[in-house]
Design a protein around this nucleic acid. Sequence first.
DNA 1: CGGGATATTGAACGGCATCAACGTGCGTGG
DNA 2: CCACGCACGTTGATGCCGTTCAATATCCCG
Lengths: 255, 255
Amino acid sequence: MRPGSLPEQLRAACAHCNLVDLCLPVGLPEEDLKRLDTLVTVRKRLKRHQALFESQFPFEALYAVRLGSFKTVLTLSDGREQVTGFQMTGELLGLDGIGSGRHVVSAIALEDSEVCTIPYEQLETLASKIPALMSEFHKILSREIVREQGVMTLLGSMRAEERLAAFLLNLSQRFAARGFSPTQFRLRMTREEIGSYLGLKLETVSRTLSAFQEAGYLRVNRREIALANREGLRQILSASPPTSTENAAATPNGN
Amino acid sequence: MRPGSLPEQLRAACAHCNLVDLCLPVGLPEEDLKRLDTLVTVRKRLKRHQALFESQFPFEALYAVRLGSFKTVLTLSDGREQVTGFQMTGELLGLDGIGSGRHVVSAIALEDSEVCTIPYEQLETLASKIPALMSEFHKILSREIVREQGVMTLLGSMRAEERLAAFLLNLSQRFAARGFSPTQFRLRMTREEIGSYLGLKLETVSRTLSAFQEAGYLRVNRREIALANREGLRQILSASPPTSTENAAATPNGN
DNA sequence: CGGGATATTGAACGGCATCAACGTGCGTGG
DNA sequence: CCACGCACGTTGATGCCGTTCAATATCCCG
């Protein structure tokens, strides 16, 4: 709290942040940006594998990823874990805590990262004074709902190939939105984390990546991915289970 | 607007609604309830299988289930469908549309039903004037995010038995919250719809229900369910995959 | 009362998990 | 700086759970 000179923590300054049109403040006029700046004053640095917050912790703030990337993990009573999302720059963390006042998932840095802290109570106060901010916040919440519905569909009705294709295309698009190459990127997460997110075992992720390489859709080397045929990946998605004929050309003998 | 006599549509009247503490207006003082009533003026009746809204339709309002129940369905480009949720009285429909201004899922009545229409623009206006309303709305959105994360985990890491047990226990609890028996209820949806929600085929749902009956956890007759041993169902959930020994007592020969 | 939608049950198949062995790059400390 | 050790990734063999295909039963609705 208390603005001014913070020892380790830097001032946030949405107004000058290059993420301003990816993050919460999209479309806010300069004037409102400054008001937002008055509450987003604390940045936090995290090292690889460090937790930004953990399940059950009291919920006090949202966090915007400023640098690096995160995973969110839901832990079941029996210890099983499920990765529920991967967050990149400009994306918000902590939305799960609003409903109950406690965090439900844990957020873990996948690499050395930095976030802006957005104290939630103050955000609500400000939102009630700036309708555009409130509106935007609702949209963010709604989009998260829709994203998760997409994942539900992926988990509920797609085959391993389709899941991975969808995942890679989604990453590609998000990198592109951040000004990075949509065809060459480095995965920030392990095969196991990808598998957890996609409802697959790490061996299946590995095998499927190898199969994609074999088929010429991409090249893969450890965490480096080079998409060679995005259209091909998209077709994997739009082609239902191998109903029968169709890809008879691709696989000469139907078995 | 226009209060008074609406031809087919009834006035909503949150202030006198028995769902007031399940629905959006939880905890609002009498005075604010009345302000909410000024925008929730339209009720809509739907027959079984009728769509309240469909994917791609312009988003204009949220809907609170007043009577009956619904499913929400996400349709993939290739025609595959996934049920993303079942909604009972007091629950909100349409949250998916806020982010893009268009509905993403379709909402279909599972039985003859009735909803209250909450024009979204007016809701936002009112929310910015009633902080408690805004706050509650955020909580509802957040809880929906958390619910979906739960489903993601279910779909990503649970076996058929566990999925169905979780589903039944969830229904049980929601019926209880509405004053109905937590042990005897009637399913509003088909095996296929349950299967779609749980990422299973209808045959698997049917078989697993039969197996639960066989094991004495419940009795099932078409859509009528009588839970006989909820603790047993809970244990299915907390017991990871059949690692080996443990339930050797329950199933005398490991197969 | 007839007929289609819904549900149950059986048999065989297949995709992904599991178990296992090996390879490889990276960071860490000597 | 290099070598060691380990986390991470790949690939193979086998088995199981849920799907698929199919036949039959039953309820509900018009």
